[in-house]
Amino acid sequence: MNAASALTAASSLVWLGMVLGISFLEAPLKFRAPGITLPLGLGIGRLVFRALNRVELALLVVLLAAVAIARPGPAAVAGVGALALLLAAQLILVRPRLNRRSDRVLAGEQMPRSRAHHAYVALEVAKVAALVTVGFTTLLP
């Protein structure tokens, strides 16, 4: 395995760990902590996901460069392409809706559950599949 392939595998698996840890562990658990109100949880979530998304963008750039150099198999290339599309969908289509909604909730408005939240979770699940594909097809050619 060359350095670019190792970087591809490592970057995708680090990203995978971040998504699993934040989206599927931290995010739902924070609302069960004693004393965490909905507005407080939303405020924390916005900060955490803004930071996560910035790191994801950086990791995507690393992956794009590493894949261009390593030239892995078609599954890894398709996985990186899927990651780019999924992250773009989250940042361009879903996050703005969630931010507008959380602004309204933080302003005191009572609102029903958001379908945009379900879309974000579905995109996270798809990202997990793409990250597993990229990481393991590069690690285990």
Rank of each mutant, 00 (worst) to 15 (best):
G45H: 06
V61T: 11
L40D: 04
L57H: 08
L106G: 14
G35D: 06
L86S: 01
P112K: 00
P72R: 02
R101Y: 00
E26C: 07
I69L: 12
A88E: 00
R97Q: 07
L57N: 09
L38T: 12
A76T: 10
A107H: 13
L93T: 01
A107G: 14
G73A: 10
L87E: 02
R100K: 15
R50L: 08
P72W: 04
G41M: 09
A66L: 13
L63K: 05
R113M: 00
A84V: 06
F24K: 07
G81P: 11
L83V: 10
G81K: 04
P34I: 15
V67N: 03
P96G: 01
E56S: 09
R101W: 00
R46N: 13
V94M: 00
L38R: 14
L40T: 13
L63Q: 04
P28A: 04
L40C: 11
V48M: 05
L91D: 12
N99V: 09
L38H: 14
A58D: 11
A78R: 09
A116F: 00
E56Q: 08
V67S: 05
A82V: 08
L93Y: 07
K30T: 11
E109F: 12
V77C: 05
A82K: 08
N99L: 12
A84G: 13
A75F: 15
L98P: 01
A84Q: 05
A33N: 11
P28R: 03
N53C: 09
R46I: 05
A119I: 04
G41K: 06
L52I: 02
L83T: 04
A27Y: 04
V62A: 13
A51W: 09
A27T: 13
A116K: 00
G81Y: 08
F24G: 05
H117A: 03
P96D: 07
V48E: 06
S114R: 00
V80G: 02
A88V: 02
P34E: 13
L87T: 03
V55N: 05
P74T: 09
E109H: 12
R95Y: 13
L42W: 07
L25S: 14
R115E: 07
V105N: 03
A70Q: 05
S114L: 01
A58M: 11
D103C: 11
G43E: 10
A66H: 07
E56K: 06
N53P: 03
A76K: 04
A33Y: 13
F31R: 13
R104E: 09
L85P: 08
P34K: 15
L63Y: 12
G81Q: 03
A84L: 13
E56C: 03
A78Y: 15
L85S: 07
G73N: 12
R113H: 02
I36D: 04
F24N: 05
H117Y: 14
S23F: 01
L63W: 15
A82L: 12
A119E: 01
T37L: 15
A84W: 02
A75S: 11
L63H: 12
L64N: 01
L93E: 03
R101D: 00
E26N: 08
P112C: 00
I44L: 15
L60V: 09
L47N: 15
A78P: 00
L85F: 06
D103E: 10
R46E: 14
L83I: 07
L86V: 05
A75R: 10
